[in-house]
Amino acid sequence: MTDVGSEASGVRAWLGEQVRSRVVGPHADLRHAELFDTGEPGWFVDDAPIRRVHADASMFVGGLRALLFQSLHPRAMAGVAQHSDYRHDPWGRLQRTADFLAATTFGPASQAERAVDIVHRVHDRVVGTTSDGRAYAANDPHLLHWVHIAELDSFLAAHDRFG
């Protein structure tokens, strides 16, 4: 007879690795070393609340909630629909977002600044018009605030409920 607790632990470990490999990507160990195995200070101290929230598995729930929340803004969603590759590469899109959050939350300051610069450069090209004729730009401060507030609210709500 098998030990149910041992089986459950094995399933949890396997499931955790499946999620990690899809969220972090194929070079998870290398990326971990780049972000965590450095003497360079990051933007946040080790016991900062943002690190506690972002380190918790409830971020997965918060991330899904944030996507749904963000989709309520028609100009933000026009930018996503017209410029994102999420339909063809959803795991890659998730990996890039997760890497941005990891770099800015846990990584050294140089990695955090690099991640922000990359996002700004990508956003420079995300401009267009909604189906009803309204212009949008991903670097528009109003849209950036909408996306970040949706993330902040969602990550905190998920952490409060499930973290």
Rank of each mutant, 00 (worst) to 15 (best):
M1A: 14
V4M: 13
S9F: 03
S9A: 13
W14C: 02
R22V: 10
V24F: 02
G25T: 02
A28N: 00
D29V: 07
R31S: 02
H32M: 01
L35I: 07
F36Y: 15
D37I: 01
D47H: 14
P49E: 09
P49M: 10
R52F: 10
H54F: 12
D56R: 07
M59K: 09
F60A: 14
V61G: 06
A66P: 03
F69Q: 06
H73A: 10
R75S: 04
M77K: 10
H83R: 11
Y86I: 15
R87W: 12
Q95I: 02
Q95L: 02
R96Y: 08
A102P: 01
G107H: 03
G107D: 08
Q111C: 08
Q111V: 04
Q111H: 13
E113H: 10
V119L: 05
H120S: 04
R121Q: 14
H123C: 05
R125C: 06
V127W: 02
V127L: 09
G128Q: 06
G128H: 05
T130S: 13
R134Y: 04
R134L: 15
Y136L: 01
Y136A: 02
A138R: 00
N139C: 08
D140E: 14
P141W: 05
H145N: 14
V147M: 06
V147Q: 04
V147D: 05
H148P: 00
H148C: 07
E151V: 03
L152M: 08
L152V: 06
D153C: 03
D160K: 09
